[in-house]
């Protein structure tokens, strides 16, 4: 439809203004609302898993606590910090876009990708450890650890496996969102380098930023819920 631009808008309109909008402001407000509604759908998407988590955590609390204790909290805390820092660099990237500092924008985007990749690397290491320990749900699953402070408590295998089923589903879905986020950021780097953005138009930077912060918020809840059920 791009060839019909001229018929609808005056010839001097912004090159990124699409045919069915009147002004850049309307286009920007529209994209922003779209992104926020998309994040609402994401909340409900993760919400289904939070519901499953909540039900079984209440039902099988001790087994969930024992299973939670078996994941390396140090790596989890480290990863939380890495992701928070990446959220900070993303916020800085958007700030650079607002101020028109294109080179700095690329630098902060690359840092965000670096921290995001570091998070995924640590996550892969954690998954590998769980695989070695036979804590991946399936035929090889076996959970021999004890609940801290309760050496006589016999941990139910099925209930411990339930924890790991939910753990892998939630962190896996979260990691998938991170991978998509990294892809989107690679696009932003290329688009910025090609001079697509200016102080008048940086909507994709802003919206992908919102997406990245959302992924961060999900992890902010996943960390205490999965790693810190009981560490006393």
């Amino acid at each position: 439809m791009s060839d019909s631009h001229a018929a609808v808008h005056s010839p001097d309109h912004h090159p990124e203004l699409r045919h069915h909008f009147m002004t850049m402001e309307q286009q920007q407000n529209t994209a922003s609302l779209g992104m926020w509604l998309f994040l609402v759908t994401e909340v409900m998407f993760f919400g289904g898993m939070f519901c499953a988590y909540l039900v079984y955590r209440l039902k099988y609390f001790n087994d969930f606590a024992a299973a939670s204790q078996s994941i390396a909290v140090g790596w989890g805390a480290f990863n939380t910090a890495v992701l928070l820092v990446s959220s900070w660099t993303m916020a800085m990237a958007v700030r650079c876009a607002q101020l028109g500092k294109q080179k700095l924008l690329i630098v902060f985007l690359l840092f965000t990708m670096l921290f995001g990749s570091a998070f995924l690397g640590v996550k892969a290491k954690e998954y590998h450890d769980k695989f070695v320990e036979h804590h991946v749900p399936g035929a090889d699953f076996s959970f021999t650890e004890k609940l801290l402070g309760h050496p006589d408590y016999v941990v139910n295998q099925y209930h411990a496996q339930m924890f790991f089923s939910i753990y892998f589903a939630m962190t896996g879905m979260h990691a998938l969102h991170m991978v998509i986020g990294l892809g989107l950021m690679a696009y932003l780097v290329v688009a910025t380098a090609r001079g697509k953005f200016s102080t008048a138009y940086y909507t994709p930077v802003e919206n992908i930023g919102l997406y990245w912060h959302f992924v961060d918020v999900v992890w902010i809840y996943l960390f205490p819920l999965l790693y810190l059920i009981s560490r006393k």
């Binding site: 928070l84 959220s87 900070w88 993303m90 916020a91 930023g209 919102l210 912060h213 959302f214 961060d216 918020v217 902010i220 809840y221």
Partner: peptide
């Protein structure tokens, strides 16, 4: 923490 991210970063 989530509130800070949503209010300031977002």
């Amino acid at each position: 923490k989530a509130t800070l991210v949503v209010l300031i970063f977002m």
